[in-house]
Amino acid sequence: MHQTLSLITSDLSPTKLGFSVLFCSFLLYTVGKMFGFGSRNEFVVEGRTVVITGGSDGMGKAVACQLAAKGANVVIVARTVKKLQEALDDVKASAANLNRQRFHYISADLKDAAQCEQIINEVTEWNDGLPPDVAWCCAGYCNPGFFIDTSVETLRDQMDTVYWTAANTAHATLRKWLVPVSPAEQKPMPRRHLIFTCSTLAFVSVAGYGPYSPAKAAIRSLSDTLNQEVEIYNGARVSGHAAPAADIKIHTVFPMGILSPGFDNEQKMKPELTKQLEAADKPQTTREVASTSIAALERGEYLITTMFVGHIMKGSAMGVSPRNSLIRDTLTSWLSSLAFLHVIPDLRRQAWNWGVKNGLPFTNSK
């Protein structure tokens, strides 16, 4: 997850478009401060149980540590037991109160839907019979490359490890959360949160991410769909019908570049053209991405980006997705519409120029 568009920050300023971008940027931040979310914390985790997939490394581990520091009971899920054990030590070291908080790890292959169900059942048993309050899907990896140079097996694996690990986790979690409770048994409960980790590639495509970005776009589409569907169950809770025990809210985080061991490995595989197209990307640390994401969750945001260029990329592709802030997101969309009048043709031009200079890319059937 590491992409940006160098064009946004390169040659726009000498043009009228550039002045529009600068003006709108200032206006965006000003209005954002004026009309932003209130001070109420919409994502309280103290004393609550959080499951984090992909929690043994990278962003998932950083999220686990920071939520532990806020008082959460944390369960991390990944495949490698040794990495899970080492990560859990770091999570415990971050805890706000070791005497009150609990920590656990589960080794599982999230590509297997049955194992995802077993995870949620195990967490429920470990959590004194109550399902987790928060599920955060961070599992996955990026295998960059040109589409035809990537084997069909790798293309399928990218969909499995990026989209299906998240979809399987969401399916198992929601089936547990949405079990109806009779009106007589219902009582006030804090809202539950399902969080996907996506990528700004779901908003703006970049050559060289053909194996990866379609899976991220699928997550964004699933998120929008579930954002509507959970309202059926939330609505039932206020109408006297049998309904789930708590309201549910969906969120999706769209980071850009994240400095991690996975990022270093991706850089070795990434086509040179792709590196050129995202040359202005300034990857964030896992801690920065985690803290920015958690702060946005505490404001109650739905689609969450972690840096300014990501906000612009999101603005270019909001479509019918719910807005975090009607005024702020509308202004961002206007700004993005101006910027991307230049950006997308420039991306295509750079790819064309690359072909003129270098000929066909080296074909590597993986």
Rank of each mutant, 00 (worst) to 15 (best):
Q3F: 10
T4M: 09
I8L: 15
T9K: 11
D11S: 15
S13D: 15
G18A: 11
V21R: 00
L22I: 15
V31N: 08
G32N: 08
F35G: 06
F37E: 14
F37P: 13
N41T: 07
F43R: 00
V45Q: 04
V45L: 01
R48C: 02
R48V: 08
T49F: 00
V51Q: 02
S56Q: 01
M59I: 15
K61H: 10
K61M: 08
C65S: 12
A68G: 12
A69Q: 06
G71M: 05
A72S: 10
V75N: 00
V75A: 10
A78H: 05
V81S: 13
K82W: 09
K83P: 00
L84H: 01
Q85P: 03
Q85T: 13
E86C: 14
D90Y: 09
N99S: 14
F103S: 10
A108D: 07
D112M: 09
C116F: 05
E117P: 02
I119W: 01
E122V: 03
E122T: 14
E125S: 15
E125Y: 11
N127F: 07
N127M: 07
N127C: 05
N127D: 12
D128L: 12
L130F: 03
P131G: 10
D133T: 00
D133M: 06
A139W: 04
A139S: 14
N143S: 12
T150H: 04
E153I: 12
L155P: 05
L155K: 09
R156D: 14
R156S: 13
D157I: 01
M159H: 11
D160P: 04
T161I: 11
W164G: 03
W164I: 04
A166Y: 00
N168F: 03
A170D: 05
H171Y: 11
H171P: 02
R175M: 11
W177Y: 04
W177S: 01
L178P: 06
P180A: 12
P180Y: 09
E185R: 11
R191M: 14
H193T: 11
T200F: 05
F203R: 03
V206M: 12
Y212E: 06
P214H: 06
I219G: 08
I219S: 03
R220D: 14
S221H: 09
S223I: 02
V230N: 06
A236F: 05
S239T: 13
A242F: 03
P244I: 06
P244A: 11
P244W: 02
A245W: 04
I248Y: 08
P255V: 07
G257N: 04
P261E: 04
G262N: 01
F263S: 11
D264R: 10
D264Y: 10
N265E: 15
P271D: 07
L273A: 00
A280H: 06
P283D: 09
P283F: 00
P283L: 04
T285V: 09
T286L: 09
V289T: 08
S291W: 06
I294D: 03
A296I: 06
A296V: 01
R299I: 07
E301W: 01
V309T: 11
H311C: 12
M313R: 01
G315S: 07
A317I: 04
P322M: 09
S336L: 00
I344R: 05
D346N: 11
L347S: 09
Q350P: 05
N353M: 13
W354C: 01
V356N: 10
K357A: 12
K366L: 09
